[in-house]
Design a protein around this nucleic acid. Structure first.
Lengths: 214, 214, 214, 214
DNA sequence: AATGAATGAGCATTCATTCAT
DNA sequence: GATGAATGAATGCTCATTCAT
């Protein structure tokens, strides 16, 4: 949940190779603002205020408001793509283990909540940039789809599963968490993570079907 | 000083549901437009065009743009609330059956995709109206929570389950479907529905219990 | 739910009196326009045109059209309040002298015609601002009422006089002058001033007292 | 102060010779509304509401909003013109008596407060109609100017008086009364009337001048 | 690196007005 | 006589964006 950009790689310093620290701060501000108000409703003044600037000053870092949205999404997806890289000891693990470990990594804290913005505000990017973002998303989806295919092949997952459907659903569940989850609830974030793991591990397992009603 | 009447409203003619057919058409247009562009990005002209009106003409039916958003949400939730009413033959059914049947009803086609708007655009309603919508949401959540509690009580569901977490997650999954689902996929909408049923039935089942045969 | 932030204002840059010269020019334009057309009928474009701006550019200086009205009234009353301060040599003068000298000061040329706007357009201010303006008015009224009371006490003014009535009437007469007075008339503005002095000096004089010789 | 139209002569039944009683009611509503809010700020809906109509229904009686303003002014001036007709016993009276009697007639109750609207909203009439109203005003002014000239001629009034200035000032004083006068004051309306009479009688009287200050 | 000043496109909203019923 | 439904011109206001300093 840490929003700070300490782990963020240098992304798109748009005008020249300017002060990257400041650019990361601006992205932080933009991410928080867009997350709170949505891209359209968020004002450049809103973003600028968070870094103690006036709106026109942002144009030192960007050429258009859309640049901020793209910058935020780019940084978030770079973080996300790093999370689909598996530790060496997971090579050769079974599908369920890999799935559960992915859920734990994704929920594990380094991942910023900015992803939930993606579905909501993707439409405000230019088609070309939308395609770029979708490319990143596809790579993430493919990672999950591969795991599902592995599980189906070796018989531990239900043979009926459509990998892309599983991938989409899992991302929806994980990324929507900040939408409804309150720290005040009776369950901790870690417990929630384990429940997600159980839900999907149990729900994908073969030889199970709901009973028909009536 | 006469009255500080800088905004004294006279008796304004009652608008709204005079011509209900037209009002429903307007709501349809608003729902489609908001769904496509989001509330902020959607223009009153966008909405008006769909019903062959000019933007100011909408003000014959509404007092403010927000009224359209509220109208759409209200109608969607009325439909939703009808779907948590169970058929008589489900009285006395076990938790898993009730859960699966609910998923089938909810996905069953009469339900408009407008619910996905809710999370995204709820913030654009006045606080009072936000509260009203949240009240409807709560009633739906409570229905699912009750089913979960029943399952936990009679031992068919994992004793560890937090009912509200389950409810939120299930709604997220169901309502996000239109976000990513394309008719062009290899699975039909009906097959998707059954997979959702399998996912949650399997995922909630207590681990102690014997694996159910199909 | 995050915050019900449908109208959460961020830290907006302080506008207004940054460039005071320009702000005074804008106020001049607003005063002239409102005086000519009335507040409601006056368009922001009307005001902006007088200072060679486009209408939206005015919002660099104001937050709302009402701010212009209040600014104009504030400035006019500040001038007016300065006119109720008496020169040292008037200390100890009799009521009639003080009254006549006030009339001469008020009509004396530095006073802008914007006061006539007050009665007409006061209602378009917010209640709080209406109260503020009325406070200034009251201070002016009190000054005249004091003079009247002095005259009544020492017997030079009619004992029957209601000070507040006299004050209101005198202000109405003085401030309405621009409404009907045309420079083309046979009397100069200075002659008009002297006639006002004569009218009120003569009209307030107690009937018991001997007729004063010139 | 009676606003009711019982004494109003049939004025401008604009479309055909329609229901005159209703037309007078509409004029009453328009007068009250314009008086309260000003012509521009007043909405046709405001006016219509007072007679339990919807705005478009007014178009049965008028062709344009301006017709209402003109209708109100016309009716008010017809009443006013009747007040400059003197009773037979005043023929041959001296100037001061005629002046005081006029003040008493004008303040005497039958005169509607709508006249104060005139100065404020005259500009919103078409030039032609403005001219017509000004014609009525001139006839009233002339009546007062004649009285002043009579007084100057026979030496009871100050020889220096400019008749038109006196007329304008007197009308300003009388017609502005409702602007500031509150029934709650210590003086009754009748007492106020007598003070007006004293003010002008005393103020116009010859052989009086204010003392010079300093 | 940042701001003051201004622009221009666009949007929600108001309101006088029309017209068929 | 009056209304429901709609129009279109206009208006206040927001906001991304520009540019000289």
């Amino acid at each position: 949940m840490a929003r700070s950009s300490n782990t963020a790689p240098p992304t798109v310093p748009p005008k020249g190779t300017l002060n990257d620290r400041r650019w990361q701060e601006v992205l932080d501000a933009a991410a928080a603002t867009f997350d709170e108000k949505g891209y359209q409703a968020a004002t450049l003044q809103d973003v600028a205020s968070r870094v103690d600037l006036l709106a026109p000053s942002l144009y030192y870092y960007i050429k258009t408001k859309e640049d901020l949205l793209f910058g935020v999404m780019q940084r978030a997806h770079q973080l996300g793509l790093r999370l689909i890289e598996e530790a060496p000891e997971l090579a050769g693990a079974d599908a369920e283990t890999r799935l559960v470990e992915f859920i734990r990594r994704w929920m594990g804290g380094t991942y910023p909540p900015e992803v939930r913005m993606v579905e909501r505000d993707l439409r405000h990017l230019s088609p070309a940039r939308q395609a770029e973002v979708m490319g990143w998303r596809d790579r993430m989806d493919h990672y999950l789809e591969d795991i599902v295919r592995q599980g189906v092949t070796d018989g531990t997952f239900d043979a009926d599963l459509e990998p892309s459907v599983v991938a989409s659903t899992l991302f929806v569940v994980l990324n929507s968490t900040p939408t409804w989850w309150r720290a005040s609830g009776r369950r901790s974030y870690a417990e929630l993570t384990e429940w997600y793991a159980k839900l999907f591990a149990g729900g994908l397992r073969s030889e199970q079907g709901p009973r028909r009603a009536v």
